[in-house]
Simulated assay, not measured.
Amino acid sequence: MIKASVMYPSGKDVKFDVDYYKNKHLPMVTNAIGEALKGLELDLGLGSRVPGEPAPYVAIAHLKFDDLDTFKASFAPHVALFAEDLKNYTNVKGELQISELITF
Rank of each mutant, 00 (worst) to 15 (best):
residue 8 Y to K: 02
residue 8 Y to S: 03
residue 10 S to P: 00
residue 11 G to W: 03
residue 12 K to I: 04
residue 14 V to R: 09
residue 15 K to H: 09
residue 16 F to L: 05
residue 16 F to W: 05
residue 16 F to Q: 03
residue 17 D to Q: 11
residue 19 D to I: 07
residue 20 Y to K: 04
residue 21 Y to D: 05
residue 24 K to D: 11
residue 25 H to Q: 09
residue 26 L to Q: 04
residue 27 P to Q: 06
residue 28 M to G: 02
residue 28 M to F: 10
residue 30 T to N: 07
residue 30 T to E: 11
residue 31 N to I: 00
residue 32 A to N: 14
residue 32 A to C: 14
residue 33 I to C: 01
residue 35 E to W: 00
residue 36 A to Y: 06
residue 37 L to A: 05
residue 37 L to C: 12
residue 39 G to T: 07
residue 39 G to R: 11
residue 39 G to Q: 02
residue 40 L to V: 13
residue 41 E to C: 02
residue 42 L to N: 01
residue 43 D to G: 13
residue 43 D to H: 04
residue 44 L to R: 03
residue 44 L to S: 02
residue 45 G to I: 11
residue 45 G to T: 09
residue 47 G to A: 12
residue 48 S to I: 10
residue 49 R to C: 04
residue 50 V to Y: 01
residue 52 G to L: 08
residue 54 P to Q: 10
residue 55 A to Q: 07
residue 56 P to E: 04
residue 57 Y to Q: 05
residue 58 V to T: 14
residue 59 A to H: 05
residue 60 I to D: 05
residue 60 I to V: 15
residue 60 I to Q: 10
residue 60 I to S: 06
residue 60 I to W: 00
residue 60 I to M: 14
residue 61 A to S: 15
residue 61 A to I: 07
residue 65 F to M: 10
residue 65 F to D: 00
residue 69 D to N: 15
residue 71 F to S: 06
residue 71 F to K: 12
residue 72 K to T: 11
residue 74 S to I: 11
residue 74 S to A: 15
residue 75 F to Y: 15
residue 77 P to S: 05
residue 78 H to A: 06
residue 80 A to H: 06
residue 81 L to E: 13
residue 85 D to R: 11
residue 86 L to P: 00
